[in-house]
C-alpha cells in the first residue's frame, strides 16, 4: 500500500507539474523581456526549495485556521499532490528552459518559414527537443518520489492513506525496525534506479 501511495501521489503531481512547467520553460526560453533575469533567478531558487519549507507553507494554508482550511485537505493525498507539484514544477520548468536554450536556434525560424504560426512553431520546437522534455519530467518525478518533508507534513503519515515509502522508512527506523526500514529503502532505491536507467536510455537516443 505504501508503495502504491508513493507512486500514485508522485505520478499525479508530476503530471500537473509537467502541464505547468513545460509551458513555463518554453515561454521563458523563447521570449526576451524586462524582468526575465529576475524570473530565472526566482526559478533557480524555487528549484532548491527545501521540501519542509514547502510543507510548512502549504500546512499554513491548508490547516484548519488557514485560508484554505475549510476545504479539509490537510492530511489527505490531495494535499501531498499539491505540495509535490510545487516541488516538481520549478525543476521541470528549469530543465525545459535549458533544453530550449540548448536547442538548435534555427528550429523556430524553419517552422515559421514553412508556414507555421508562432504557437505551431513552439510546438514543433518541443517535438524536436522531446527527449530533453522527457528527461525534465523524469527528473521532477525523481525529486517528488524521494522527498519526505511534504509527505510527512501535509500527508501526516497515515497508514493506508498517506503513508509513502519515505515516511514509512522514517517511521520504521524510529520504531527500531531498522531492517524493515532498510528493506523499504532498497525498494525506493530500485525505483530511483529504474527511473534513471530509463532516463539514460532516452538520452542515448
Amino acid at each position: 500500500m505504501t508503495v502504491w501511495v508513493s507512486l500514485y501521489t508522485s505520478s499525479c503531481a508530476i503530471v500537473i507539474a509537467a502541464l505547468l512547467g513545460v509551458p513555463i520553460g518554453l515561454w521563458l526560453g523563447l521570449n526576451r523581456f524586462r524582468g526575465r533575469q529576475l524570473l530565472l533567478a526566482l526559478l533557480n531558487t524555487l528549484m532548491a526549495l527545501p521540501t519542509v519549507v514547502v510543507g510548512l507553507l502549504l500546512f499554513g494554508l491548508l490547516s484548519r485556521q488557514g485560508p484554505l482550511g475549510p476545504l479539509g485537505l490537510l492530511f489527505t493525498p490531495l494535499a501531498m499532490i499539491a505540495g509535490q507539484t510545487v516541488l516538481a514544477t520549478p525543476i521541470v520548468a528549469n530543465l525545459v528552459l535549458a533544453a530550449v536554450t540548448g536547442a538548435d536556434q534555427r528550429i523556430i525560424n524553419t517552422a515559421l518559414t514553412l508556414g507555421a504560426s508562432r504557437f505551431q512553431a513552439a510546438v514543433q520546437l518541443l517535438r524536436e527537443i522531446r527527449f530533453g522534455v522527457m528527461a525534465a519530467v523524469i527528473a521532477g518525478f525523481g525529486r517528488v518520489i524521494a522527498e519526505v518533508g511534504v509527505a510527512m507534513m501535509l500527508g501526516g503519515n497515515i497508514r493506508n492513506s498517506t503513508r509513502t515509502m519515505t515516511t514509512a522508512i522514517a517511521l520504521e527506523t524510529s520504531k527500531g525496525e531498522f531492517a524493515f526500514g532498510l528493506a523499504l529503502g532498497m525498494l525506493l532505491l530500485s525505483v530511483a534506479l529504474l527511473v534513471n536507467l530509463f532516463l539514460n536510455v532516452l538520452q542515448q537516443r
Partner: peptide, 19 residues
C-alpha cells in the same frame, strides 16, 4: 503574418532539417 508567411519561403544557407 502567419498567413502572409505561407506565400514565401526562405531556405537558409545551412538549413535545419527536422528530426
Amino acid at each position: 503574418p502567419a498567413q502572409q508567411r505561407q506565400k514565401v519561403t526562405l531556405v537558409e544557407q545551412s538549413p535545419y532539417l527536422f528530426k
